[in-house]
């Protein structure tokens, strides 16, 4: 067997390292002792039914919220507002400033994000076919989702976290988004963590899975090994959650 990139990265710090995360809201346990690592350069799928705690987990990883107990490290440094520069987050059910046009927003983004890559933004604008003139609040969901992804990917941040990038997005937009993600991943410099329900759209892309349900880790899988044992991502998901 040829030596494989995934296995040789032990020396580098993991892109994300969660240790014993706990979170309670109003006596309801949202996250219960969540621990996992995400190696650099991987594309990890965070899968689980609605209300499993995915969004809360991603908020904590990105430093927008803090857990009751436990710690998160991003590239070996504790997660928090200071790490926002090294990760690019697409928040769930969120929208960009609706009072701006796409063009205006991209101009602002160029100033806001120190790691903005103008050439990449233009390239992605073509690839994702996002038109510049329309007002963000007047865009369709699919269009806005593509613009949000464009914003995420036009940065040079080494870690990209997408929280439900496909909600309410049409088939063609979904395919476009997935293929843009692939294009980004090919350089090998970026790590993706994607929470999604659309397993079929993404299952060929994932190389690792983290399955969470009821706030607990229900499985961490290497997708290649799953396939060796004759299981697909979808069948594994059904096995765990059905």
């Amino acid at each position: 067997m040829t030596s494989y990139k995934l296995n040789t990265e032990a020396a580098e710090p993991a892109a994300v390292e969660c240790r014993g995360l706990n979170l309670k809201i109003k006596k309801k346990i949202i996250l219960d002792d969540i621990s996992f690592d995400i190696p650099q350069g991987s594309l990890t799928g965070l899968l689980g039914p609605n209300g499993a705690g995915k969004s809360s987990l991603l908020r904590i990883i990105s430093g927008l919220a803090s857990p009751d107990a436990g710690a998160v490290q991003i590239f070996g440094k504790p997660a928090g507002v200071k790490q926002l520069g090294s990760l690019s987050l697409l928040p769930d059910r969120s929208s960009l400033p609706g009072w701006l046009s796409v063009k205006e927003w991209l101009e602002f983004a160029c100033g806001i994000y120190p790691d903005w890559d103008q050439a990449k933004a233009q390239e992605l604008q073509q690839q994702l076919s996002v038109s510049g003139e329309s007002l963000i609040s007047a865009m369709s969901r699919g269009e806005e989702a593509r613009l949000q992804l464009l914003t995420c990917l036009s940065r040079k941040a080494p870690l990209i976290i997408l929280d439900e990038p496909f909600t309410g997005v049409d088939l063609i937009s979904r395919e476009r988004i997935a293929s843009a993600v692939v294009g980004e991943l090919a350089d090998g410099a970026r790590t993706f963590l994607i929470a999604t329900h659309d397993i079929r759209e993404m299952e060929l892309l994932f190389d690792r899975l983290i399955l969470i349900g009821d706030g607990r880790v229900r499985g961490i899988e290497d997708v290649e090994q799953l396939r060796r044992s004759g299981k697909s991502v979808e069948s594994r998901y059904r096995e765990v959650f059905a």
């Binding site: 507002v81 926002l84 520069g85 059910r93 960009l96 400033p97 949000q148």
Partner: peptide, 14 residues
């Protein structure tokens, strides 16, 4: 507001 999370994830200090 729905753009809150986007704005709060700008890579700048609070």
């Amino acid at each position: 507001q729905s753009h809150r999370d986007w704005m709060l994830s700008f890579p700048h200090s609070r």
